[in-house]
Design a protein around this nucleic acid. Sequence first.
DNA 1: CGAACAATGAACTATTAA
DNA 2: TTAATAGTTCATTGTTCG
Length: 593
Amino acid sequence: MTETSYGPAETTSPNFIQKGISDEAVASFIEMGFSSEMIARAIEETGGANSEPRMILETLFNYSASTEASSSKSKVIDHFIGMGFPEENVIKAIQEYGDENIDDIMNALLTYAEVDRLGETKDVNINTTDDDDNLYSLSSDDDEDELNNSSQEDSILQALIKMDYSREEAAIAIERCGEDASVEEVVDFICAAQMARQFDEFFAEPDKKEPMNNSKKRRTYNEPPRRERKPNTAMANDQLIYLPKEMIGFGVPNRPGLMMNRAVPVPDIACGPPFFYYENVAMAPKGVWATISSHLYDILPEFVDSKHFCAAARKRGYIHNLPIQNRFQIQPQPHNTIQEALPLTKRWWPSWDERTKLNCLLTCIASAKLTNRIREALEKYDGEPPLQVQKQVMYQCKKWNLVWVGKNKLAPLEPDEMEKLLGFPRDHTRGGGISRTDRYKSLGNSFQVDTVAYHLSVLKPLFPNGIKVLSLFTGIGGGEVALHRLQIRMNVVVSVEISEANRNILRSFWEQTNQKGILREFKDVEKLDDNTIEQLMDEYGGFDLVIGGSPCNNLAGGNRHSRVGLEGEHSSLFFDYCRILETVRHKARQMRK
DNA sequence: CGAACAATGAACTATTAA
DNA sequence: TTAATAGTTCATTGTTCG
């Protein structure tokens, strides 16, 4: 990865920019995640100075498609890097053992990791090298209290911890699988255990079957501790759904734990068509997801953190009746770390800020005064500030998602950076008279496109001739952008969105991407009555997909004022989602007869 | 000038999980 | 304990447009 310019005054452009291709075009390719080398090659191949941006883009897509399909080697490399092994070790192992035998590579990597670890422990105090790469390699300094155990069992434990399993979980799994078990076996065990746990949690009925004072009742490890405080009585009889420790849903790319089938199948009554896809915040007040699930055919939510897809966290629950096999990612894939996604920040990132992922992108940003105060505080010190100061700065960085934009200079994300992290095209929310504040608001309330597209990708082979979509709470069109980037043709989109600014954004996206299908816009889900829905279905021949995430204002943790649960003023619109979905499904059944 | 709108910054707060 | 969290309200200042 070559760093080029970092400020408007710099004029050191890469060579290919002089060849008649506009800077903007090149910048947008880089924006999309293609490397300078690839772009140069694509320009060369499509006619040099005379090539058109469209042709270049097509060629670039072909590159990424072909590397995806033909190079099993790069796939294997990605696989192991995804597990958390350092890239250099992965390449070394593949050079040594080829890319065929996964087990051999795994064993080699474990050996390297072991060697590295022993090496590290010897020179613990020589940790303050100026090597920038240190920032981006996985740090495992926090394991210093457990040294000198080089048994196979321990190396497997280390590997599992590197894969982000908890020490406790990994240790239990190793114990159950026996000393001689391979890493794969242990991972399989953990996955099976996760599935079983999901199943148990969904079906366990603590209130009915066993009295709560039965202390023998086995508690799952992520069950919250019992409190003296009385639980919310409105929810006391509801079945609770617990959040999984690792928010990977039915699986995310490049990580272990991919499920081939749901632990709890979709009940017959909810099986498509039409398909539906519902989304909301994962960390809603207790009992909310149980209620949501009970209103959506008791389908178990899929909880996914978008940090597995991009450089920002976004913990969300999704309830849908889509198949889960053969999912794929949209291309080009987003950058995986803050430093890759925002390359201009890399230069200013201090070594004591170890973040590689941002926290959840919200609707509010930090004040300029705050970042200025931090700058003034940091300027007092020549080198690294004292630990206590570092700690306070990091607290603010994490709280407000600040990034380094200059020496001692922090700033909140710009709207275009949020667009990029969320998987939208550049300037998706720009123009059309929308204020900056409203851009933040709309973006903060949006889908993460790569995550949603991964789930929706299963629709591509099912609808080769395009689909008809009913999009509720459309917002800035996260679902539509996902479908577009999946190259699934949208024959009809009936969109319901209350905000005029957001409707404008979707309409201009529709025009800019030359959509041939019909875009029909409504304002208010509450006013979309059953008659209208049936008329629309008659007119268009039904819907193939009902997609939407209902308001989370009254569920979100950030809300100090009215976090009152699903019945809140805004969040209760969820019930309109249910009403509309059921109307569509009922009508669809009638139309099939 | 003055109304309307946009931006700013601070003070709010509690549930949940690890 | 620490950490995270698609947020709301309100006073104030800035900006635009007749």
